[in-house]
């Protein structure tokens, strides 16, 4: 296969970026999308050009590093996969593919397709935890948790923090990410004691980071590689109201 690429190139955060055209020949349908980039980069290096920077690590869809906006969609045309799990057989010979970084004020570009998602870490640091020091825990089975609640908490906890939700949302809102963590911890009894403080702190941090607000388009959930449900956002809204109305 031959593939035409339009890739966002930007030297660093201060520089101005632009879309540049590249041609990749000898693309095998069995290649992953990132392997196609490896081949292109190898080519650029031999030619003496600057290879394209992009984030990636586990290449099996769980670390959440990869973050390409492909033909107008985060992680490309397939549902339920990350960029690293997308293969070239999803494209046709001669296709032109536009590849951009996640776009959000809260995700400044480091270089080319790599963005800074540390805002997510700061949101977790604000409250995305249960305050329990190592060594204080009681026996794990002293606290029975219904299977349904445990399973639901797991579904929320499956978030990989890739930021596709922010990338997909027309408002660059981080509500799905934040609500997934709030939901996981509020569905479990361990999370109850500090539930009110948690949701307030996390929402405040989310707002401070400059993410947009939610207008319930559902794009986040539709593009989420882990299928995190919109009900998480509703749950966070509820938690936030009750925390404000009845909290300190």
């Amino acid at each position: 296969m031959k593939i035409n690429l339009k890739v966002w190139r930007q030297k660093n955060n201060k520089a101005k970026g632009e879309l540049k055209d590249y041609k990749v020949d000898h693309v095998s349908p069995d290649m992953s999308f990132l392997e196609m980039f490896d081949v292109l980069n190898e080519d650029l290096i031999t030619k003496g050009d600057d290879p394209i920077a992009f984030d990636h690590d586990c290449r099996e869809g769980i670390c959440g590093s990869c973050s390409m906006h492909i033909n107008g969609r985060p992680h490309g045309p397939l549902a339920g996969v990350t960029t690293c799990q997308l293969h070239m057989r999803s494209f046709k010979d001669g296709d032109t593919i536009v590849v951009e970084p996640w776009r959000a004020g809260a995700f400044p570009v480091n270089k080319d397709l790599s963005v800074d998602r540390s805002a997510f870490d700061r949101i977790i640091a604000a409250g995305g935890f249960i305050s329990v020091n190592t060594g204080n825990a009681q026996d794990a089975n002293n606290l029975p948790i219904g299977k349904e609640a445990a399973d639901e908490a797991f579904m929320s906890a499956a978030c990989i923090g890739c930021g596709a939700c922010v990338a997909a949302c027309k408002n660059a809102s981080a509500m799905l990410f934040v609500s997934a963590k709030v939901s996981q911890l509020s569905l479990l009894p361990q999370g109850q004691p500090e539930a009110k403080m948690r949701v307030m702190a996390m929402v405040n941090q989310m707002d401070a980071e400059g993410f947009g607000s939610c207008t319930n388009t559902g794009a986040c959930s539709a593009e989420c590689p882990k299928g995190i449900d919109l009900s998480n956002i509703a749950r966070m809204n509820r938690e936030f109201f009750s925390a404000n109305l009845t909290g300190k």
Partner: peptide, 22 residues
């Protein structure tokens, strides 16, 4: 054994039986 206790206290959603135990 303490690892499991610690992780559950942190809110790690391990698989559970219907009775609520791990």
């Amino acid at each position: 054994s303490s690892i499991i206790d610690q992780c559950v206290a942190q809110g790690v959603p391990f698989a559970r039986e219907y009775g609520g135990l791990l």
